[in-house]
Amino acid sequence: MEIKISTLIMNWINFGIIILILRHFFWNKIKGIIEERQNLIDQKISKADEDAEKARMYLVKNEQILQSAKEEGKKITEGQREKGDKLYAEIVQNAKTEANSLKERASLEIEREKEKAEYEIKKQAVDLAIELSVKALGQQIDEDTHRKLIGDFIAKVGM
């Protein structure tokens, strides 16, 4: 089996042309999709932070309520004071638990959306590369082989 230099050079030129075409026509679209997903994720993080801030405000409010309950507790018997302390601890624990729960749910949702976006982008890139390479080469190649080659390329590029 003999390798011809001219064939090798033409293959590299064809490959370079395909890369330039992909970059020219699709790079901004893919970049836009990624930015859109990132903005969505940022919004969800912002909402989670707002929810955490609300939880902190509720915690402060609960602490104020507890303080007034302590002042009244001085006038009431020792049993009433213990009851108020118990209620305070329960409210604080519930607020913390709820805040942690909200953060965890938001983090999981963000991670799922990120994985979904990455999967969609990879899938779209493979489909576009298959269509372009078939058009550029002017012949039909086995689709499984084609997908494998393009998947290997994307894995090497690091998408």
Rank of each mutant, 00 (worst) to 15 (best):
I3Q: 08
R105A: 08
S68I: 04
K4C: 01
L132N: 09
Q139H: 03
I45L: 09
S6K: 05
N94D: 13
Q124N: 12
K31N: 15
L59H: 02
Y88P: 00
D51W: 00
D85N: 14
Y88R: 08
E113K: 12
A95P: 00
K116R: 15
Y119W: 10
E90S: 11
H24V: 12
K70E: 14
A55F: 03
K114D: 09
A99P: 03
L108C: 05
I76T: 00
K70A: 11
S101D: 12
I91V: 10
L137M: 13
L66W: 10
A55T: 04
K86A: 12
I150T: 04
R81G: 05
I3P: 07
E71P: 01
R112F: 12
G32P: 02
I76K: 12
E78D: 14
L108V: 08
K148I: 02
E50Q: 08
G73A: 13
E143M: 04
I17Y: 06
A117H: 04
I150G: 03
R81Q: 13
A69T: 00
L22Q: 05
K74Y: 09
E82M: 04
E36M: 12
E82F: 03
L87M: 02
L108I: 02
K44C: 00
K44D: 13
E115N: 15
I19D: 02
K122D: 06
K61S: 06
Q140C: 03
A55Y: 06
K54G: 00
E63F: 05
R81E: 08
I65M: 03
K83Y: 04
I141M: 03
A106P: 01
H24Q: 13
M10F: 05
E131D: 14
A125S: 11
Y58T: 01
K4R: 13
V134K: 07
E53R: 07
L137V: 12
F26T: 15
L59C: 01
R81V: 10
I17F: 12
Q43H: 06
K74L: 05
M57E: 13
I45P: 01
R112H: 05
Q139D: 09
K86N: 10
I41Q: 08
R37L: 11
L149W: 06
K123E: 13
D42Q: 10
I91A: 11
L132D: 06
K135F: 08
A55W: 01
Y88L: 00
I130Q: 12
S46P: 03
I9F: 13
D42C: 00
E72W: 07
A136D: 00
L132I: 14
K148Q: 10
K47A: 09
G151Y: 06
Q64Y: 05
A89F: 02
E72Y: 05
Q67E: 14
K44G: 00
E71K: 06
A89P: 04
F15C: 07
E111L: 07
I41L: 11
N100T: 02
T7M: 07
I45M: 03
E120Q: 11
K123M: 13
K135M: 05
I41W: 02
N28E: 13
Q67F: 12
I33V: 04
A89D: 14
I33E: 09
E78T: 10
D49E: 13
D142F: 01
K29M: 04
A129V: 02
A99C: 01
I30W: 07
T97Y: 06
A69I: 06
G16I: 03
E120G: 03
E63N: 07
